[in-house]
Amino acid sequence: MSVLIVIPARYASTRYPGKPLVALTGASGKKQSLIERSWRAACAVSGVDRVVVATDDDRIREVAEGFGAEVVMTSETCANGTERCAEAHAALGGRYDVVVNLQGDAPLTPHWFVEGLVQGLKDMPEAEIATPVLRCDGATLNSLLGDRKAGRVGGTTAVFSADNRALYFSKEVVPYTGKPYTEAEMTPVFHHVGVYAYRPQALAQYPSWPVGPLEQLEGLEQLRFLENGRSVLCAEVEAKGREFWELNNPEDVPKLEAMMAKMGLE
Rank of each mutant, 00 (worst) to 15 (best):
P200R: 02
G264T: 00
T55Y: 09
G194R: 09
G264Y: 01
G241E: 04
G66T: 02
L217T: 11
C136T: 07
V173E: 03
A158F: 04
E218P: 02
D58G: 08
M124T: 14
K262D: 06
I35G: 08
A64S: 15
D252S: 05
A88S: 13
V133Q: 00
R50M: 07
H111I: 08
A69T: 06
L21K: 02
F244T: 05
L145Q: 13
V189M: 04
A79F: 13
V52E: 11
A41M: 03
R15L: 14
V63Q: 11
N101G: 00
R15H: 12
S28V: 04
V63M: 09
A54C: 12
A41I: 06
A239W: 01
F190H: 12
Q216V: 02
V173W: 02
R165K: 13
P200D: 03
D147W: 02
L217M: 11
G194K: 04
V114P: 01
R15V: 09
L34S: 05
L247P: 10
A27M: 09
Q222S: 14
M259N: 04
G154C: 08
E83T: 15
T156S: 11
I60R: 04
S46G: 15
A158Q: 02
A158Y: 02
A91G: 04
D137H: 03
N142Q: 14
Y198I: 09
G178P: 13
E236V: 14
A130S: 12
G104N: 06
V232W: 09
N248P: 00
R165L: 13
V118M: 04
P17C: 12
P20C: 06
W209P: 05
P180Q: 08
R40F: 00
V99M: 12
H191C: 06
A88G: 10
R135K: 11
S2T: 14
F113I: 01
F190D: 00
V48Y: 04
V237Y: 08
K240T: 00
Q201I: 09
L121M: 02
G146I: 05
G93E: 03
Q119M: 13
A79P: 00
V153G: 09
L108F: 04
G154S: 07
P17L: 13
M186C: 01
L102C: 05
L144I: 14
S161A: 15
V189G: 07
T14C: 01
T157P: 02
G241Q: 03
D105W: 11
C78M: 10
V174E: 08
M259V: 14
V232I: 15
I60V: 12
T74S: 11
K122V: 12
T182G: 13
P132V: 07
E87P: 15
V48M: 05
E236T: 14
A79R: 15
P132K: 05
N101P: 00
A69G: 03
A261F: 08
M186T: 12
T14W: 06
P110D: 11
E70Y: 04
D137L: 01
V114M: 03
W209M: 07
V193D: 04
M260Q: 05
N228H: 15
E172P: 00
L223M: 09
L220P: 08
